[in-house]
Design a protein around this nucleic acid. Structure first.
Lengths: 201, 201
DNA sequence: GCCCGGTTGGCAGCGACTGCCAAACCGCTT
DNA sequence: AAGCGGTTTGGCAGTCGCTGCCAACCGGGC
């Protein structure tokens, strides 16, 4: 699929599958527009395909599921988190590493307004929220071994490491929920710190 | 639906919708059997209906969705948790109340073996896990106001209360995951305590 | 016997998603 | 210019979960 022609140029090759990327973006924008305009459940794949000028079949070839049309591919997200954690200095604790990962994830959004809009959409649509939560736990599982290494010195076992990772994500979600409730007031990371502080009082 | 005939008898009325309950249980057992035998995704509603001796249509009338065939109705679960929290003594803190609620929830399972089997099924099926997580956050939202009351005296704001509830559930999930990994070894509540202790070290 | 509220079953239909096959397309060679 | 191989695309039919609608049914009160 993506490799076909990926010769020497480290840049985006053949100016042909740049068209492909463009098509993908076109689909994505159309989908996001319709979702915010009329809601996720009220928007059908058929409509998105029609308005984006592609067939339903190819839409499903670009994005495997309807949920993938929001939040982009899961892989990118996961690797960003894992790489960020891995890059943290060895003397940084698990909590610091996780905080850094969340910070990196938040920096993906182009603007707070866009983030707010997207968070709202995900938060208010049951199916989307469920999908997000699924991704989240897969993330946790991926991160677990990395953080186990940082935790081992202090005699923390696997179950405890899992609890720590889960707690970090839970507080992050709580922070975004609170942020959403306040219509984007304040900084998510600050809310995260406050929440975690309350937990670890 | 359920009220139709619910006269004076506080017991299960009219010996007629006892048949209904029986039918419901029949469907549930069939579904659970098939799920564990051949997997959730591989089992179709048509098959369950056929083997349970009802039409697809009535199956959907008893259980609104395929996911409802596992873990029973959400309402029952939610009310159990909220009632348990509400019943806790006023001087009990939020953490104690949540722990009591988890304990009550765990006591719903008839046997550890059955719990293990069911947890495994949910944990290993993406769609089921997503559905469970969705229920979980709805639970959290329901519980939030109750615990806010217990937390208010110590000057905890809403965002922090949310973080605390989310953390408790996260640690509970981590505990069940660890319990599952150890094939049902030990006690979930003990694992929960250990995880929470590590978090709040 | 008869009507009546509530239950059931069958059918048609929707929306997400997949497999399959033929047509279109791109870049390359002759 | 014509041909060719590999990839991409579109259309079609089919599956599965789920819903609305309507006709048939069943137990109980008049």
């Amino acid at each position: 699929m993506t490799q076909g022609t990926q010769g020497k140029g480290a840049t985006t090759s053949t100016l042909w599958d740049r068209t492909r990327q463009l098509a993908a973006q076109e689909i994505l924008q159309t989908a996001l527009r319709l979702f915010t305009q009329q809601g996720y459940d009220e928007t059908t794949i058929a409509q998105i395909a029609r308005e984006a000028g592609v067939s339903q079949r190819t839409l499903f070839r670009y994005f495997g599921t309807k949920e993938d049309l929001i939040g982009g591919s899961e892989e990118g997200f996961v690797t960003l988190l894992t790489e960020t954690v891995r890059k943290q200095p060895v003397d940084a604790g698990a909590w610091e590493a996780l905080r850094a990962a969340f910070k990196a994830a938040l920096s993906l959004h182009t603007s707070p307004e866009q983030a707010l809009e997207r968070f709202r959409l995900v938060h208010h649509t049951d199916s989307l929220r469920a999908a997000y939560l699924g991704k989240r736990v897969r993330c946790q599982e991926e991160l677990l071994p990395l953080l186990e290494a940082r935790l081992a010195p202090s005699g923390t076992d696997r179950g405890q490491a899992r609890a720590i990772v889960a707690t970090a994500f839970a507080c992050f979600d709580a922070a975004t929920a609170t942020w959403l409730e306040g219509n984007g007031q304040g900084d998510i990371l600050d809310l995260y710190d406050e929440g975690l502080a309350a937990v670890r009082s």
